[in-house]
């Protein structure tokens, strides 16, 4: 339960020093199909929010929500699926200080890095970055174990693994069947953001979202004024890399709608 600082000397708990990426080298790919052997909450009720957001869930308060007339306990509202090194979370945190957000990442070294990064940011900026956290999980398999129905208002899929080979398309994080699950955890009106520098994948993600009956494209004028959109390509490490190399990006931003079946 206690957070162990990186055994490889990268993390210095408590101090405001940011972890250095060189100590958290990880492979670019991870197999989403393999059986996972990390702990997974049995249901969303088992997600221990006090561990992720200690300021919102003080430990000494005991069982939260035991009805002292308080407003209901805050819930996670944003999910960054495949958060990588956490750039987006760090960018989003000051924009939405009252929203809890979580990054989900399959590679454990990368997750460790983000953990340390958040802790360091909290230590050097008291009162900030208390609303972001990260969890190591396979979001393609276990999304419903973390979030209840209509819990999320934003979901992010930034620069996912393109899985070029047709045989591996089922490993892509956006697919018709997985969109069913994302739609389930998103509230009506919630927005799903996707971006990639791979044209083929950009078309794939857009096509899936267009075909899915529970999503509709967000109009261009709305995208222009959405402060989040700028972060998609500028905040993440992967986005910066693409910008450095002068690459093109392809985004698809869609809204969760409710279906009226007569």
């Amino acid at each position: 339960m206690t957070r162990t600082s990186g055994a490889n000397g990268g993390g210095q708990q408590g101090s405001g020093k940011l972890p250095r990426k060189r100590f958290y080298r990880a492979r670019a790919h991870s197999n989403p199909l393999s059986d996972s052997h990390f702990p997974i909450p049995i249901s969303p009720d088992d997600v221990d929010l006090s561990q992720h957001y200690p300021r919102y869930f003080p430990a000494d308060k005991g069982e939260h929500g035991d009805g002292d007339g308080d407003a209901e306990a805050p819930r996670i509202r944003f999910a960054d699926v495949g958060c990588g090194f956490g750039g987006l979370l760090v960018g989003l945190s000051p924009l939405f200080p009252d929203k809890l957000m979580i990054g989900m990442e399959l590679r454990d070294k990368v997750t460790e890095y983000v953990k340390e990064r958040v802790l360091a940011l909290r230590a050097s900026n008291p009162g900030q970055y208390d609303n972001i956290s990260v969890v190591r999980t396979n979001s393609m398999k276990y999304i419903p174990n973390y979030f209840g129905k209509a819990q999320l208002s934003k979901m992010f899929f930034l620069f996912p693994d393109p899985h070029f080979k047709e045989k591996n398309h089922r490993r892509r994080v956006i697919s018709m069947h997985l969109l069913d699950e994302y739609a389930y955890v998103m509230e009506a009106g919630g927005i799903i953001y996707t971006i990639t520098d791979v044209e083929e994948l950009g078309i794939w993600m857009r096509t899936c979202l267009e075909k899915h009956p529970l999503f509709e494209a967000v109009p261009e004028e709305e995208i222009k004024v959405d402060p989040v959109v700028k972060l998609l390509s500028s905040a993440t490490e992967e986005g910066q890399k693409v910008a450095r190399n002068g690459g093109q990006t392809f985004q698809a931003i869609f809204r969760r709608i409710s279906l009226q079946e007569e």
């Binding site: 699950e181 739609a183 009956p213």
Partner: peptide, 8 residues
């Protein structure tokens, strides 16, 4: 595509 619930 419409999931009613997950029983977990």
């Amino acid at each position: 595509p419409q999931i009613q619930s997950f029983c977990l």
